[in-house]
Amino acid sequence: MRILIELFLIFAKIGLFTVGGGYAMIPLITQEITKRNWLTLEGVIDIIAISEMTPGPFAINSATFIGVRQMGLIGGAAATIGVVVPSFIIVVLVAKYFTRVKDHPVVKAILSGLRPAVIGLISSSTYTIARNAFISRTAGNLTMSINWRSIVIFVLALAGIMKLKIHPALMILICAALGIILYVWI
């Protein structure tokens, strides 16, 4: 029981102090869980790799992973609920308040600046994902190679979404299959 509560509280703290999402929280998570010997640094790197290769955010994945390794499915649930609860409360309050103030001129003015900036942020993360997909770096960033197979998959996927209106989830399955076909057999 003590470990369950500890898992919940530690991950609630991680959830509360993670602002901006993404990999900004890796140092915090690493610090909290290596301090308690819940996981070694290699374990953290494994979770990062698993998070990149499975759906779902790193914070949720590491909470589930560590919770399950410590105390099975219940431990996983305690940690995962912990990481979600603080932001859930805050977001619900913000959502409730926001619908009332969103037509206020000052809020409208702020949003007129935020909207284009968010599109810029989304473009930036698109660029990073595309660069990681198209270019592999090896030997300490000294050599680069272009993954032409990934570029072929990218072009086919873009055409599939724009022209054939294939559902994004189906598209991801098709791309996984294309990855196996192109990278294993050709």
Partner: peptide
């Protein structure tokens, strides 16, 4: 050893390219 399973890496390369395409479209 999740990453050492057959086809996991290859499928992931495909998924990465697919995610890039989905996001390009949304931009």
């Amino acid at each position: 050893n999740f990453k050492e399973y057959p086809f996991v890496n290859e499928a992931f390369y495909g998924i990465q390219a697919g995610v890039a395409a989905l996001m390009c479209h949304v931009v």
